[in-house]
Write a protein that binds this DNA or RNA. Structure first.
Lengths: 343, 343
DNA sequence: TTGCACAATTGGATCGATCAAATAAGGTAA
DNA sequence: TTACCTTATTTGATCGATCCAATTGTGCAA
């Protein structure tokens, strides 16, 4: 029933040329004379020929496939970010003739075992890692064994930040939050608070720094700023409690910027929708409820990640092209027919 | 730098047998004498040999890869369900030696073009579709061309429901909602309303039917039931408005079951957290805010989908094994320290 | 011991493409 | 015209595994 698929030989016969010429038309058309090329192209179209992916991979020793780990927990409300990133990555990869495949792992050791499986089986020739930490054994293993990879997220440990072997793309949370604060102030909010995660997470610290910088820029000194920020773990309940504390120590607040949509939701509930709240990640929840949020622009991140993969190996020590910072978008939403959340 | 990977020939030489014997040990160990098998296994381990995936695929004409489409919109709050499904599928597929790859498409026509690309390139040998509708051109194309596939979701059009060529897995929304209603009643809620989608969507109608059945079972007649249910489009704002209407026509309500977490969130806001609300999909939002929800058990769905893929083609007309209904889980949450949502 | 069935193992061909090197065709200068 | 250099195209080998048919080994009955 499933008719035999046409091969290069079939096309060659139909076009009256050799296999290799067909191959050339497909892979380096410029070296084939135009007349010949047209004949081959026509035959390809007529037979509906498509190269057999596995045969090509076997011969070229390139899998043209990148592997992405799918996280088990998917990270609560913000899990949607990775999801969108994955979508963008798949789309961009297709355009470049690459395939995205998935794998799962329970921990770093397990993940390294997966690397081995995928690399030894020549299933994959590059990896995209979605989050890394200082001294991450995974990136160390990949570098040591010379396998190309890019991470979405900076390696926050100091030494690796400029490691020319470690290619990464990240979103400039600092710039995004600073911009959000500026916009809030421009639209009349005088006192803008920050609801962040406990100090120590690279990402969270950057976001707070962005807020602090924007306030400093507007003449708010450090002492005053200290009263305008509180911490909470990543949960709605914790955020709500923290936001209440914040309202206590700074009663004349006009707006709150939060380090995540989860925290923002907590703040929104705590303030009863009376304050303007800006979250981070622009998750479906922000959209559904209608509060402002900072969008990571995963599409740009995905594009940059693939561009970096092209450079892997070709890059020299200290090459700035091995890193890329994407500036996020601030999505302002005017909370429609007052939601009437009251906490 | 990257040492040449060992091949079957290397293993054969090391074990003092022929290539084919090595291949046999790997693919049909039972036909190899134990002593030989042990020798080969040892050599495999020592050399760290792994079969070259592309070479094997080329020869066996099997890709051992299933393709899943990653949706562009990811469906708001409930997008997380597909995400979790994808994770479960990847995990189960790995266990079966299968690879999951992704593709994207803008519409059905584009998706069919993708099918063609993936099939003709022998990249993939089965598809998993995440949602289908009556007369879906995609499933028609796949059936016509004889390519194996499974859908997550029933084809709601009547004719295909029992089409033995169409393999599907779905979640029994009716049973899930009915169970939720029973549990609410068992824990003291006398009057339980339903906030659903406008009639016409197969999934939505089933969920409402589950609610109606459970009430009928408890002696609530159709006339009374009619007052206990309203419709809303899938948005928090619409749900909030609808829930207010519902409260108007049935003031003594004790609880509301909703067709989705989005609707549930709207109901929760409208009722100020005074009523018990049960959503559907058990999304991160339900977890974060702490309301009850019905979990689709995507892990079971994924497992069933892969089992069905094994059967594709081998199944006879009317074989009940070509369909599978999974009963969802009702996750009851007692809304912790009162969230204090007031609408 | 010989013969025979059956299990275990082997060698060669093959999957569909590209690589590497050889050949053919086209042009220009001597 | 001949020698020589490009440019265009072809031929044979190869990637790493499995298929297939043929061969060798083993056990048991005659």
């Amino acid at each position: 029933m499933p008719r035999r698929l046409p091969t290069v030989s079939d096309v060659a016969r139909a076009a009256g040329v050799s296999r290799q010429t067909v191959s050339n038309v497909l892979n380096s058309p410029e070296i084939v004379r135009e007349a010949t090329r047209d004949r081959v192209t026509a035959a390809v179209a007529e037979l509906g020929y498509r190269p057999h992916a596995s045969a090509r991979r076997l011969r070229t020793r390139r899998a043209s496939t990148i592997a992405v780990r799918l996280d088990p927990f998917a990270g609560g409300i913000s899990g949607a970010v990775l999801d969108r990133f994955l979508h963008a990555l798949t789309e961009r990869a297709e355009a470049r003739g690459l395939t995205v495949m998935l794998y799962t792992a329970t921990d770093a050791g397990d993940e390294i075992r997966q690397f081995q499986r995928l690399v030894d089986g020549a299933v994959v020739d590059a990896f995209v890692l979605a989050s890394t930490y200082s001294g991450d054994p995974r990136t160390e293993w990949l570098i040591e064994h010379g396998h190309p990879f890019v991470t979405f997220g900076r390696p926050w440990g100091i030494p690796e930040l400029d490691d020319p072997q470690h290619f990464w793309v990240d979103v400039d949370g600092r710039a995004g939050v600073a911009e959000a604060v500026r916009r809030l102030r421009a639209s009349g909010a005088r006192r803008v608070g920050f609801l962040g995660w406990p100090a120590g997470s690279g990402t969270g610290d950057e976001r707070r720094a962005g807020w602090a910088a924007a306030l400093a820029e507007a003449g708010v000194d450090a002492g005053e700023r200290a009263l305008l920020t509180v911490d909470a773990e990543e949960s709605v309940a914790a955020a709500r409690a923290a936001a209440k504390r914040l309202l206590g120590q700074a009663s004349d607040l006009d707006a709150i910027v939060a380090a995540s949509d989860t925290l923002a939701l907590g703040a929104l509930i705590a303030t009863g929708g009376a304050l303007r709240v800006v979250g981070f990640d622009n998750t479906p929840v922000a959209e559904a409820i209608g509060f402002s949020s900072i969008d990571q622009r995963v599409d740009e991140v995905a594009a940059a990640a693939l561009e970096l993969l092209d450079l892997v190996g070709r890059s020299e020590a200290g090459d700035p092209r091995s890193h890329r910072l994407i500036t996020p978008d601030v999505i302002m939403r005017t909370p429609g027919p007052a939601l009437g959340l009251v906490g």
